[in-house]
């Protein structure tokens, strides 16, 4: 079952983050580069209007064709990508713009360059900044999102997931290799949209019917409008409360 779902979300027919941008954001203006090292094509960052609200977008690209797949590194964001996201998020805070992440990434960029350029530091810095943001942030899982990189983009006030999307500590294949089971790893570890909705991580599952784009736009608007009612200084607390509530359901044996 999980295998079928992986095929679906990894297929070239799966809606791409950039397609969502072009259909729900007007006046989208891309912002390139981390101003230090380069411009990572695996993540598109920029600003535009959602309805009449200016928003900041962080969108991971996986690629639909072989050429795109290569260009986007299959959605494995590199160090300069996290750095680009960080500076765009800092600007969002200055101009009081909500931040929307569109997540479709299989995991870390396992490469010599990413290690030598400080992948760990870049991910940690983005997790930290997203947690401290005094503007609302929302994450939408479009396909899969695994490990620290996905967490950096989803350390947010609200998390939304398309029906078939997955969010996990590591890719299902990597998890299976470590806990050595022939069962679907999702039988043990919650990672599907419905499982994560049950434990409070996923705030809303977005139905993948023929109104998908409308569903996405309406859900994002609804949550942004709710979050705009929270005083800016209280947004970090709202965010940490969300995650603390989830972790409070874990029995520590005390």
């Amino acid at each position: 079952m999980l295998e079928k779902q992986l095929q679906l979300i990894r297929s070239n027919n799966r809606i791409a983050s950039t397609e969502i941008i072009s259909q729900i954001i007007t006046d989208f203006t891309e912002i390139h580069g981390d101003r230090v090292l380069g411009d990572d094509p695996a993540i598109t960052t920029g600003i535009g209007f959602l309805s009449d609200i200016p928003v900041t977008i962080l969108a991971v690209n996986r690629g639909k064709t072989m050429i795109e797949h290569q260009r986007f590194n299959g959605g494995q964001v590199r160090v300069s990508g996290y750095r680009k996201a960080l500076r765009v998020v800092e600007a969002a805070e200055k101009f009081n713009r909500p931040v929307i992440s569109l997540i479709d990434m299989p995991g870390a960029d396992a490469s010599v360059d990413s290690e030598n350029h400080g992948q760990s530091q870049a991910i940690a810095d983005l997790i930290d900044k997203m947690g401290a943001l005094t503007v609302p942030n929302l994450a939408l899982f479009v396909g899969e999102g695994h490990s620290g990189g996905a967490l950096a983009l989803s350390n947010a006030n609200r998390i939304l997931m398309l029906e078939a999307a997955l969010f996990s500590v590591a890719s299902p294949e990597a998890v299976a290799a470590i806990i050595t089971t022939n069962d679907d790893v999702s039988e043990y570890l919650p990672m599907t949209s419905s499982q994560l909705e049950k434990i409070g991580i996923n705030d809303e599952t977005i139905l993948e019917n023929d109104r998908l784009i409308v569903n996405i736009k309406q859900a994002l608007l609804k949550h942004i409008q709710e979050l705009k009612l929270i005083p800016r200084d209280s947004l970090p607390m709202d965010r940490s409360d969300k995650f603390n509530r989830i972790l409070a359901t874990w029995n520590t044996g005390e």
Binding site: I127, M130, L151, V169, Y188, M191, P236, F243, W250
Partner: peptide, 17 residues
């Protein structure tokens, strides 16, 4: 630690809080 799945992952952001 993989055996605690997403609950392990969420330590990363909550420790930084």
């Amino acid at each position: 630690r993989m055996q605690e799945g997403i609950y392990s992952l969420l330590q990363m952001n909550t420790i930084l809080n």
